[in-house]
Design a protein around this nucleic acid. Structure first.
Lengths: 225, 225
DNA sequence: CGCACGTGTGAACGGCGTGTGAACGGAAGC
DNA sequence: GCTTCCGTTCACACGCCGTTCACACGTGCG
């Protein structure tokens, strides 16, 4: 993971210690130009700016980090209680703040939440397996960059498979868990749907759904343990 | 502005006092079902859940508020220092948290920032999607430079679609979130309105509203992720 | 080698979800 | 009170798609 940008340089010992203990990579920079100069190729993972010592410099730093081409996010601000009123005017300078003096656990929790949000937080509900991508919100599927045109039942079946990879299911299990009701006769229904799924997956990926003879079907790689 | 949902009922006096002094409208609810029952027509403006007294109930509340059809946002959690470790497992339950006991100023600052961010998200009074432009203030719509003459319900439906692009909705979801009440019978109502919308959008843009067979409808370009 | 069993495959049937035109009824405006 | 507009409901036709059937193929076993 890319390092977190920390300001000022050197940062308060408590901050450095907390980051180290939590296992974050970080690098301190005195000002915006230093930060730009020593920026990693993939950009900063985020930034922590301590504002209780030098508010002026800290807010300048925030502005600089946010007005760049690639805004640095997430940005955590550390302020003293007396600065709380100022924050109202600087809403766009930070994503979260922490009161100083802070408890290491609180800082850790805030960082965790900020990075969680930056990652999956904003993303939609997605099921992935290898090249296969299912977007549960839009009811769309794709194999790599090729969109799959699936019917409703095909989609539901594939969704069930993709969320239970490696496990083998009998036709009866599939009928009751995908079709969702007690089913009389018609185990061949599963066969046909599997066949159509394999056809739409294409020859290359047809093996994703394997038949387990005299049992049923299994999706994805077999797992021995 | 719609009121903020507060839990538990009654909330700690400090919280109530802070909210009142800051000028927020709020309403306390003991649990999720009460919250649903007394929800305003336009939904809650956000939620504050106090978790240091009854953690179990509080987290159940958060889960319920987040797993609904229309997730309640933003959600601020108030926890004690000993609960910080738990938060890591509940990242999706809240947008920000505040340590208890809290300083009123800190809570105020967090609320201000949360609502500021929510405001940026929903955007100003204009909703755009491709050529489509909706002016929420004047209740006017246009497709490129051609103005659209929409009736009230058509406008509301299109507005909902345009603010939730890509996501598929069932007819029931559309009825409850656009028409705004529990609906008996008449799922075909949605069909007819969709049909008229497509007609007014013109042949060129009729594809903006796609039908997802045996599910419902989806607006906008297909997004896999 | 031949039989039995399980599965793949193509085709056909039939149900149901959806599009569409029309009519009803209530509300708003003149 | 009349007209117009608009949201809703109804009826019907079409076509997709889930299901079933019939048959071919492969495999294991006696």
């Amino acid at each position: 993971m890319e390092p977190i940008l920390v300001s000022p340089d050197p940062p308060p010992p408590v901050l450095a210690q907390t980051l180290d203990l939590a296992g974050y990579a970080w690098k301190a920079c005195a000002n915006a130009s230093v930060a730009s100069a020593s920026e990693p190729a993939d950009g900063w993972a985020g930034a922590i700016v301590v504002a209780d010592e030098d508010p002026e410099g800290a807010f300048m730093m925030c502005r600089a980090l946010r007005k760049r081409d690639a805004s640095v996010e997430p940005l955590l601000l550390i302020v003293s209680g007396t600065q709380l009123d100022e924050l109202e005017q600087r809403s766009d300078f930070f994503d979260d703040f922490c009161l100083s003096p802070f408890h290491p656990k609180e800082l850790e929790a805030r960082l965790h939440h900020l990075f969680w949000r930056a990652g999956r937080g904003s993303g939609p509900e997605i099921v992935e397996y290898g090249d296969l991508v299912l977007n549960l919100e839009t009811y769309q599927a794709a194999l790599g960059d090729r969109p799959l045109d699936l019917t409703y039942m095909e989609y539901e079946l594939l969704k069930f498979f993709a969320t239970h990879p490696g496990k083998a299911f009998t036709r009866e299990q599939l009928l009751s868990r995908v079709w969702g009701y007690e089913y009389y006769g018609g185990a061949r229904t599963v066969d046909v749907h599997v066949r159509r799924l394999r056809a739409k997956l294409g020859e290359e990926h047809a093996g994703l759904i394997q038949t387990v003879r005299s049992v049923g079907y299994r999706f994805g790689q077999s797992r021995i343990r």
